[in-house]
């Protein structure tokens, strides 16, 4: 369903502004949606365990500036920076998990706290410098397509999404994530190591935010002291999760929906600008989309099924409930 809406918005905008549909632009839109998509996939995992992670923005930022500065200074390859980006994300995500699980601070507040602290760390790393001159290999990777309209940047996003979808559906860890989110008390009684599961969810979320940081710096080509926070990517990611069919109450939804929601959100926001509305209203656009997303979420909760399931049943299709929701 999301895909349809996204295409509709794309179509309408193209009709109004023909240059919107130029070949380069499609590729650019897809590429620029990828950092958000990867963050959203991670955020979805945390939402599945009834959590919320506001700190993904500075985590992305720290990974972006750390890898960016190293690349700028010593011209290393993108792949060689991958372990660093992942390690940063894992470390910071794990700390979030500790605060939520062991210090038992509510996720919203704990990650609000780490949001501030990580934001400070990001500033310290930058030390009033910015990443501006990346090696050519990085720029090329960020701007080139390997097929017409299919940018290289799309590859990690798609791979991560497919991998996470499979892991969540087909591994014990994935099923434990769902079980914990659906009913933590019951999961504990059924012998699931609930603390480990909850911490691992935040760690995975952090890891993907770290990866997204690397993708971001490759795609955008620059990074600074407020990368991530400046576009409130954490809120966009939550919105993506909700639009994609994951609920805030845990145990329901999936990452595929979030991936498409990220593309949808990017296209919609870009459409706002192309349609000639002042850029200042972009933030309002996120706000409105978020409101729409939570209204949909509320509708799903009240109806006990997702909008896409409702649509599917109207169209006559039937799928077991625990399939990845709404793509």
């Amino acid at each position: 369903m999301l895909v349809v809406v996204t295409l509709a918005i794309f179509g309408l905008t193209s009709a109004a502004q023909p240059h919107f549909a130029l070949q380069g632009n499609i590729s650019f839109l897809l590429a620029s949606a990828m950092p958000l998509a990867v963050v959203a996939v991670g955020e979805t995992v945390v939402m599945l365990v009834r959590g919320i992670d506001l700190s993904v923005a500075p985590v992305l930022g720290i990974a972006a500036v750390s890898t960016g500065f190293i690349a700028q200074d010593s011209h290393v390859s993108v792949l060689s920076m991958l372990p660093l980006a992942l390690a940063i994300g894992i470390g910071l995500g794990f700390v979030n998990g500790l605060f939520v699980t062991y210090a038992r601070i509510p996720p919203i507040i704990a990650t609000l706290g780490t949001f501030t602290v990580y934001g400070g760390i990001e500033q310290l790393i930058c030390n009033s410098r910015t990443v501006v001159t990346l090696p050519t290999s990085w720029i090329n990777l960020g701007t080139h397509d390997f097929l017409p309209d299919v940018p290289y940047i799309l590859v990690p996003g798609v791979l991560v999404t497919i991998a996470m979808a499979l892991i969540l559906w087909r591994t014990r860890w994935g099923r434990s994530i769902y079980a914990f989110g659906a009913n933590a008390e019951a999961a504990f009684r059924a012998g699931i190591r609930v603390k480990a599961i909850e911490i691992s969810a935040y760690t995975v979320c952090g890891m993907l935010a770290g990866l997204a940081g690397l993708i971001y710096v490759v795609q955008v080509g620059s990074a600074g002291y407020n990368t991530g926070s400046e576009i409130s990517i954490q809120l966009q990611a939550i919105a993506c999760g909700l639009i994609g069919g994951t609920t805030l109450t845990g145990g329901k939804g999936g990452v595929v929906g979030s991936f498409f929601a990220a593309i949808f959100l990017t296209v919609a926001l870009e459409g706002v600008i192309v349609a000639g509305i002042a850029y200042q209203w972009q933030s309002a656009g996120v706000g409105v989309l978020l409101l729409v997303a939570i209204l949909i979420d509320a509708y799903q909760n009240r109806q006990g099924r997702s909008v896409s399931e409702a649509l599917r049943s109207v169209l006559g299709g039937h799928k077991p409930v625990q399939q990845e929701a709404s793509s």
Partner: peptide
């Protein structure tokens, strides 16, 4: 105390899902 959003099947095997 079941996981209400999950299937009966999954609720049955939760924690010991066969490999």
């Amino acid at each position: 105390s079941l996981m209400l959003t999950l299937s009966a099947l999954e609720n049955l095997f939760v924690g010991i899902i066969p490999r």
